[in-house]
Write a protein that binds this DNA or RNA. Structure first.
Lengths: 216, 216
DNA sequence: TAGATTGTTAATCGATTAACAATC
DNA sequence: TAGATTGTTAATCGATTAACAATC
């Protein structure tokens, strides 16, 4: 009904994280106040975020942890199998494949590809690295809907084009470069250098004073 | 003077990325219009973002690419050496170390630590993995201001505490968990599972129709 | 019943965009 | 000079927060 903003959607996985944690510690019920404390978020915001999708809480009580986990997983479509493909079997690609156990939740990297013949055929856990020529048929066969890009920046656009052509719906790009994709493809960026550079901004300056900036 | 919002700061590294690219292709000058096209951003926003920090452009002409790169690098404090430490010499940690060449720009991972004796002493490129006991002295010695966390979620809080105790100013956390740090420490999250889950939300639903949601 | 906490409306705050004078 | 494009103010849009009736 109402349009749901990106900011809201980005908070949902974080809520899920905290809820899973509470669940593991056998906590039955949680209030928006408690969640807000844990996440440094305004409780009203949490209630409003959740209310976009339904009435999940009980007045005077709070939210049932298990039930809310179930609901958020539904919203994020984690209640159905979700197949992910990855291109770039370098260090980063291999590292991400190791998160497969973390992902559980029906979401799984089901195929890995690389352009370099020397890498094709090698094993990453239970996955065998495949050639780029196999990308399109495998995306169809395995019903891969998300493509992860972990190749060098110069090759990233090409890989993105291949993913789009193969029919994925979303792309997660780890290469430090902006990609052009059609409007109907969703693209998220996960470039850690960008993150690191913006972090650098907040470090205290070396010599400048706060109050009275020198006039020149 | 005016408070600069986080949204603005997060866009700066992206501007830098595109500008570096233009510079490599020997482009001398760029307008906010052109930058906006490349980044899918409103030109007015780009002009406004930059204007927070000074007058970098020339009316009727645009921005000098090299000059703007220099200015943004100053803003992000990339014009001075910036030493980064990393804890967790697993696959992900190793992968990030390989970005060292990418970072160049005075920013560099200068030390790697791990809690597991079996890993301590092994090499990652030119870096030797060190024991956790060496964390504090090395942070001081190398003037490490940013700590990267690439350990499993359960150990992440402990590592964060160690980093804070050692005196870093900022933390980049790759573990999928919220961390508690003092207010004066800046913390950024780079958890790719969170990113992947929010991406899942935007994939088309399997059965639901767009127009006429069923009433129940 | 009294206390707690939700869902939601209204108020506030902040960020994005439009518009335009200044000027290269 | 005419055309282009900045820096900046004003207008718009959207997101966050406060407040409170409903209700467990």
């Amino acid at each position: 009904m109402k349009k749901i903003s990106e900011a809201v959607v980005r908070r949902l996985p974080v809520y899920l994280q905290v809820l899973n944690d509470l669940h593991k510690r056998d906590v039955q019920t949680v209030s928006s106040q408690e969640l807000g404390n844990k996440l440094d978020l305004n409780p009203a915001q949490i209630r409003k975020d959740l209310a976009y999708f339904g009435e999940f809480g009980r007045k005077g009580i709070g939210y049932d942890v298990s039930y809310l986990i179930e609901k958020i997983r539904q919203i994020l479509k984690l209640d159905q199998p979700l197949s992910v493909g990855l291109v770039g079997a370098g260090n980063l690609g291999r590292a991400l494949c190791n998160y497969n156990t973390y992902l559980k939740d029906n979401m799984k990297i089901t195929a890995v590809f690389d352009a370099h013949p020397a890498v094709v055929g090698s094993q990453i856990n239970s996955l065998t690295v495949q050639a780029m020529d196999d990308l399109k048929p495998k995306v169809e066969e395995l019903n891969i809907v998300i493509g992860i890009i972990t190749v060098p920046a110069v090759e990233a656009q090409n890989v993105a084009d291949r993913f789009v052509d193969a029919g994925v719906k979303g792309i997660l790009n780890f290469a430090p470069t902006i990609l052009r994709v059609p409007d109907h493809i969703r693209i998220h960026y996960a470039d850690f250098t960008t993150e690191l550079l913006s972090l650098a901004y907040y470090l205290e300056k070396k010599e400048e004073e706060d109050d009275e900036p020198a006039v020149d």
